[in-house]
Amino acid sequence: MESESDLYESLRAELRRGSLSLAVLARLRVERYGYTLRQALADDGLDMEESTLYPLLRRLESQGLLVSEWREEEKRKKRFYVLSPAGEIMLARLVQEWRAISASLEKITGSPGDAPSI
């Protein structure tokens, strides 16, 4: 049987997975390379390990939601990512869905900052 902390971490990871995809798409409305993307997300309170970020970027690109380009900057090659036109459409749809889910969850769990009643 899983310990309570293991179960929490498992459910937390599941909850974060979709949120991270949405956050990455939203932050890539402006072109960035991996390190600056990771910094921007951390500044917004979403820390993400490189081992999570780079596979996510590759997956989103393979799905046609991002485009990337290698360029040399500061004497180093860096891969820059930005939303594709399909990514912009998908982001708008996902934000709309996220807002609907968030509003529903706030009704179910109570107002933001309130502890849910059990």
Rank of each mutant, 00 (worst) to 15 (best):
M1G: 15
M1E: 13
S3R: 00
E4A: 06
S5R: 05
D6F: 03
D6N: 01
S10Q: 10
L11Y: 14
R12T: 01
A13W: 10
A13Y: 06
A13P: 01
E14F: 02
E14K: 05
R16M: 10
R16V: 03
L20H: 08
S21N: 14
S21Y: 09
S21H: 05
A23E: 15
A23Y: 14
A26W: 11
L28S: 09
V30Y: 10
E31N: 02
Y33S: 13
G34Q: 11
Y35H: 07
L37P: 10
Q39G: 04
Q39I: 03
A40G: 06
A42Y: 11
D43N: 07
D43R: 12
G45A: 03
D47P: 09
M48G: 11
M48W: 10
E49I: 04
E49A: 15
E50Q: 04
S51L: 05
T52F: 09
Y54P: 00
P55Q: 00
L56C: 00
L57E: 00
R59F: 03
E61H: 02
Q63C: 01
G64A: 10
G64K: 04
G64C: 09
L65V: 10
L66F: 05
V67G: 00
W70T: 01
E73Y: 13
E73H: 09
E73S: 11
E74R: 13
K75V: 10
R76I: 06
K78N: 02
K78P: 03
K78A: 07
K78T: 04
R79P: 03
Y81V: 00
V82T: 09
V82Q: 15
L83D: 06
S84H: 05
S84R: 12
P85R: 14
P85H: 12
A86R: 15
E88H: 06
E88K: 06
E88R: 13
M90E: 15
V95I: 14
V95L: 14
V95D: 05
E97D: 12
W98F: 13
A103Q: 14
E106M: 12
K107S: 05
T109P: 07
G110L: 01
G110V: 02
S111P: 08
P112N: 03
P112M: 01
G113N: 00
G113K: 03
G113D: 00
A115P: 13
A115S: 10
A115R: 08
S117R: 14
S117G: 10
